[in-house]
Structure formats: structure tokens, C-alpha cells
Design a protein around this nucleic acid. Structure first.
Lengths: 120, 120
DNA sequence: TTATATACATAAGAAATAGATGTATATTTG
DNA sequence: CAAATATACATCTATTTCTTATGTATATAA
């Protein structure tokens, strides 16, 4: 899969798990590839998750008890569906709230006027 | 220095250089400690930069030619002032724009009401 | 038949940061 | 006056996170 991220990938750091949890909180269950496609669709191609980032993240969330999995055979292929656990659900809410709050704080830095920034 | 970041530090990853460049674009020159204090002030204590992150980032930006430095002796202490170069200035504009754009894209994913995050 | 899409995954290395530690002076407070 | 806190620089180790590359396999479209 060729990846062409619009943003310097740095910015995505730290937001991946929040994105995953948010998507799963709106969909009963999703599988990895579906998540990459959904993110691409929602962001109009601006964010493309790589497998090397996605799968370890999913495994970590599962190991932390936020997700459960079920394997479904579709044709001859296996799909691994991920579903939020109860604690995954509350964690999703927390992380999204935190992200919104963080973005509001970033706005404060980005929107400062020269006057406001004067050192005393 | 004891650090008590309000946000899971993960989120800050990738935004540090943009924050530094933005602050320097609004101030002719700043020194490291001043940057930490300014960020703390603007964000009402929500973001506290650690020295372990700040100084390597400043050194990297300098090595990349985006900043120049001058050492000023204040009393018996040395302050190292950082100033944007020309390319640092345009880089600041680019990175801030990119961050704004990225946050808009994130909004699409977390699907918050436009009013709440409205720019202006 | 060849490329692209679907679908999972790991492994090596880079990059960024936390947290601890170190050095030194200045100022405030009990 | 002694102790704590603030100012001011910096480095180092360990950890986390992600990129990039690679691997396996089937299905479909050109």
C-alpha cells in the first residue's frame, strides 16, 4: 500500500489511539482495514493510517482490555473484528474529551496577538 | 522542576516545534526558560514543557538553520536567546498553517459541533 | 497476466519525549 | 540566617510511538 500523508506525520503522533477508539464508539465493530479506509474517507485522504502503526496500536488496546476481538471468515479470508469493551467505551469518551480540550489549548497558542505575547 | 502536565503527554508529540516557532515569530528573541513560562502562562498551566524535550528541540532547530542564538550575560548567569532566521520565519508560518489544517481534519473525525471549535 | 485491492501481521530502526540528574546563581520566606 | 524555591542552562537513559520495509495470501479489475 502506498502511503501519501498530507500532513507531516509528526502531528499524528499521540492521536492514533483516540481516533481508533472514537471510530469504534460509533460502530459496533470494525476490522483493521476498514478503519484505515474509514479514516481516509472521513478526512478526504488527508490522513492515511499505516499498518505498521495501526496493528500494534490495536493489539495494545486489546492487551489493555479496551477492545475484544472476534475472527470472522469471509470467503477464504479472515477478518478480525474489534469491539469496545465497557472500559474501552469510557476510555473513548475520556480520550476524545482530552483531545478536544488539548486542541482548544493549542488554539490559545496559535491565536495569540503580538500585544498579548509581550513579555510583561 | 516538577512537571504536572494536564494532558497525556502523547498529544504534545509533534506539536512542540510548531509551538516554539510560533512563539518566536511573535517575539524578536526568547530564551529557553522564558519559552516554558510563556507556554505555561498562555495555556493556564495546561501545557508544561520539559527541559528534556525543549532543549534538544531548540538545538535541532538551530542545527537546521531555523534559529540563531546569542548569549547574554545577566548578572552572573548566561541566557541563551533564540531568534528566527528568515527560513525559520517562513517555516513558522508553514507549520502553524499545517497544524490548523490538521486540527480541522481531526475535528471531522471526532465530529464535534462546529460552533464549539469554530475558529476566530 | 499484471496490477491493484483486500486483509492480516511483524521487525528493524528512527524520532520524540519523559524523567532523572547535574551545575550554578538569585531570591524569597520562615 | 538557613532552607526552599525560582531562574537558567544542559545531558543521558529508557521508553513509546511510529515509519518503512517485508511477508503471506486471496480476490478482482484492467
Amino acid at each position: 500500500m502506498y502511503i501519501c500523508p498530507m500532513y507531516s506525520k509528526e502531528l499524528l503522533k499521540g492521536t492514533l489511539k483516540t481516533i481508533i477508539l472514537k471510530l469504534l464508539s460509533e460502530n459496533d465493530r470494525m476490522y483493521g482495514y476498514q478503519i484505515t479506509q474509514k479514516v481516509k474517507e472521513i478526512t478526504e485522504g488527508k490522513i492515511n493510517l499505516t499498518e505498521g502503526a495501526l496493528y500494534p496500536a490495536l493489539h495494545k488496546l486489546e492487551a489493555d482490555g479496551l477492545l475484544t476481538t472476534e475472527k470472522i471468515e469471509v470467503g477464504n479470508r479472515i477478518r478480525k473484528y474489534y469491539t469496545l469493551t465497557q472500559s474501552g467505551n469510557s476510555s473513548a469518551k475520556e480520550k476524545v474529551e482530552e483531545l478536544v480540550d488539548f486542541m482548544e489549548t493549542l488554539k490559545a497558542i496559535i491565536n495569540i496577538s503580538p500585544q498579548k505575547l509581550a513579555w510583561s
